[in-house]
């Protein structure tokens, strides 16, 4: 067992973990944050995507100890004061969720993209989401959702300015 110290969804975490475990397993079983899904468990499907220091990674193939000293964002960390993140709202409104299994990962990749690029092009969205499998939506709704989210984020910012 080894001590893992990191920040998860804005909170300091210090726990003893098995260093042979993946980050996905520690997030799900040690921290109880089951919003992170395990699909293929070989870094192909993207369901387990979380952000490490703002960058999307497949947590199923990341050794958990690699999170040491890092800032981890999972799907549970997106809501603020009981309100959904604009990206989550946009995914609901655009019909970009069906069974929901791939959704947490896709939303987090969208989050990383929108943190870096306020007005992503269709190509930017395609590239950023290219590491996700979705067997329900047909992917097109993802474009709509990310575009809509980008509008929502901008209008929220404008409101805050006023």
């Amino acid at each position: 067992m080894q001590e893992l110290k990191c920040v998860v969804n804005g909170k300091n975490v210090a726990i003893m973990i098995d260093p042979s475990h993946s980050l996905a397993d520690v997030i799900r079983y040690d921290l109880g944050l089951t919003g992170t899904k395990k699909g293929c468990e070989e870094g192909e499907c993207g369901a387990c995507t979380v952000l490490v220091n703002g960058l999307p990674v497949d947590s199923c193939i990341v050794p958990a100890m690699k999170a040491n000293g890092k800032n981890i964002l999972t799907i549970e960390g997106l809501e603020q004061n009981g309100e959904l993140d604009p990206i989550q709202e946009a995914f609901m409104e655009a019909g970009a969720i069906q069974c929901g299994f791939c959704t947490p990962g896709v939303v987090l990749s969208a989050k990383a993209l929108l943190m870096r690029e306020e007005n992503p092009t269709k190509e930017d969205i395609r590239d950023e989401l290219s590491g996700h499998f979705c067997r329900c939506t047909g992917y097109l709704q993802f474009y709509d959702a990310v575009k809509l989210a980008s509008e929502k984020i901008k209008s929220r910012k404008n409101k805050e300015k006023k």
Partner: peptide, 9 residues
């Protein structure tokens, strides 16, 4: 190489 999630690490 791989996907963005792979290339990031």
């Amino acid at each position: 190489v791989g996907s963005p999630q792979i290339r990031n690490i």
